[in-house]
């Protein structure tokens, strides 16, 4: 198989959300055929440059985005593709030269704030961002402000995402932002999301961006990337 054919197969596996040989893929017919993970391994073994593989990830996700916009793909389809890229990144990343890894879109730290154990939205955002090329650290649920601050110091993110589903816990977001400002980390952009949150609430607590869903988060990140 030529390099182009292999990369084309890889692209198709990602677009079809076909993670590995045990996964049935988009249309339920792909179980038993090599998936994204096997194809990435094969590409690396055959000497294809990690940078080229990365490029193919980006092109695949672009196609997935278009299919979603056209209504042909739904949220689970897009998520499956993002998960393919996310897991494949774990294989490719150690092989990257320093120059290649710096080509990533940035570091994103994400957490559900203290007192809140809801994680659906957070998990979707984390998976999609990873698939879109961001380096994501997910602190999980019920994370105290102090722990988030500690993680910021260790991970040095460009962006932070805070999630809450309850009116009683969304106020915790303000505490996190206060700590970030007190530490003089104003260069980090803070995103917030979750059912009870709003643009007005984001402004009130000093967050940089309120997102209703993952698509808004991705669009806002793209915009920030263009500006910077």
């Amino acid at each position: 198989m030529s390099k182009d054919e292999l990369l084309k197969l890889l692209e198709n596996a990602i677009v079809m959300g076909h993670l590995d040989v045990d996964d049935e893929g988009f249309d339920g017919t792909m179980e038993g055929t090599p998936g994204t993970l096997e194809l990435v391994e094969k590409a690396l073994n055959e000497g294809i440059e990690p940078g080229e593989i990365l490029k193919s990830f980006g092109e695949s996700m672009e196609k997935v985005g278009k299919l979603y916009e056209s209504g042909e793909y739904f949220l689970p389809d897009m998520l499956a593709s993002a998960e393919c890229v996310g897991e494949a990144m774990d294989i490719v990343e150690p092989k990257l030269e320093l120059d290649d890894s710096s080509a990533g879109k940035g570091k994103f730290l994400i957490a559900t704030v203290k007192g809140d154990v809801h994680d659906i939205g957070k998990n979707i955002v984390a998976t999609m961002l990873k698939g879109a090329g961001y380096q994501v650290k997910d602190l999980g649920i019920n994370v105290p402000a102090e722990d988030i601050l500690q993680a910021i110091k260790e991970f040095e993110p460009d962006f932070i995402g805070l999630s809450a589903l309850l009116t009683t816990t969304m106020i915790e977001m303000e505490q996190v932002i206060k700590l970030i400002k007190e530490e003089g980390l104003d260069n980090i952009k803070v995103f917030i999301g979750g059912t009870p949150t709003s643009k007005e609430f984001a402004e009130k607590i000093g967050a940089d961006q309120h997102c209703r869903d993952v698509i808004e988060a991705l669009q806002a990140l793209e915009k920030m990337g263009e500006v910077s």
Partner: peptide
């Protein structure tokens, strides 16, 4: 420990 497992597995049921 991730709810995306159920979402990704939902593709067939969705169709």
């Amino acid at each position: 420990t991730s709810s995306t497992v159920f979402m990704v597995a939902a593709r067939r049921g969705l169709r």
